[in-house]
Amino acid sequence: MTSPIRKIYFGVTDRRQMFRLFDRHARRPNRWQKDDSALYAGEWFEIAQDQHDYMLDILPPLWMRGEMFAMREFLTGSVTSVFYTLRINGVTRFFHAYCDLSDPRSPYDMREAIALRERWPVKAMTRDERLEHIWSATHDDYRGYAGEDFRPEHRGKRKVMVYGRSGSRFQLLETLSDAQISEKLPVQLRHLPHVQAA
């Protein structure tokens, strides 16, 4: 199964955020009891140059190809971290992505997808990108996975804490309304135009 390529965080991460995003699914039920490659493969986000250089210096890379290198340690199955140095609209930027190396084209397809996404002429976000950012930015105490208190068909899906007049409760991430999404996004992202995924 091929996982969609998706941006999971808006902005440039600092070191703490980068390490947190490396395993943003850490609290999933039945961790490592099945092939979780699809959870990770295709995820990407922007990092700072010093984080990129730090990761290059940790271990000898599995391989280096032009503007990218792959980590020697695999996260799960054939999925590993690939780091990119890309010149986009005249600016050198740095990215982390999870690529499934069972597909030799995966790192190249990812590179093209990142460059295409970051060259959009208008700063905007899709609904899915808004939801992924919310999941990435929410503290573990305020997010989780649906359990016995949800209908059987929803168990295991991602949930986040929402607040209303009657108090706080968990709600499925995918069911958040536009108003709830706006409330959960940082101020600088709330008013970005909505776009359809390309």
Rank of each mutant, 00 (worst) to 15 (best):
M1T: 11
T2D: 06
P4D: 07
I8W: 01
Y9G: 01
T13G: 08
D14I: 07
D14V: 10
R15Y: 06
Q17I: 13
Q17K: 13
R20I: 12
F22L: 11
D23E: 11
R24W: 05
H25E: 11
H25P: 01
H25G: 01
A26L: 11
A26T: 03
R31I: 02
W32Y: 06
D36E: 15
D36N: 06
S37T: 09
A38I: 04
L39E: 06
L39K: 04
Y40L: 11
Y40I: 09
G42T: 05
W44H: 13
F45C: 10
F45V: 04
E46P: 02
Q51T: 03
H52P: 02
D53K: 05
L56Q: 15
L56R: 14
L59S: 08
L59R: 09
L62C: 09
W63L: 15
E67N: 12
E67K: 06
E67C: 07
E67V: 06
F69H: 14
A70C: 13
F74G: 01
F74Y: 11
T76Y: 09
T76I: 14
G77P: 06
S78M: 07
S78P: 00
T80G: 00
V82E: 08
F83H: 15
F83D: 07
Y84G: 12
T85I: 07
L86V: 13
R87V: 05
I88G: 14
N89T: 08
N89P: 00
T92Y: 04
H96S: 01
H96F: 09
H96Y: 06
A97Y: 07
Y98S: 01
D100E: 04
L101M: 10
P104F: 07
R105I: 01
R105V: 03
S106T: 03
P107I: 00
Y108W: 11
D109E: 14
R111P: 03
R111H: 06
E112V: 04
E112G: 02
I114P: 04
R117V: 04
P121M: 05
A124R: 13
M125K: 03
M125S: 12
R127A: 03
D128A: 11
D128Q: 13
D128P: 00
D128M: 09
E132N: 15
E132P: 01
H133N: 08
W135K: 05
W135G: 09
D140F: 07
D140W: 13
Y145P: 00
D149A: 15
F150T: 09
R151G: 12
P152L: 03
P152A: 10
E153G: 12
H154Y: 15
H154S: 15
G156W: 04
M161H: 01
G164Y: 03
R165K: 10
S166V: 11
S166N: 14
G167Y: 08
G167H: 12
R169W: 05
R169T: 01
Q171H: 11
L172R: 08
E174L: 02
T175E: 03
D178N: 14
I181Y: 02
S182I: 00
E183M: 03
K184P: 09
P186G: 03
H191Y: 10
L192Q: 11
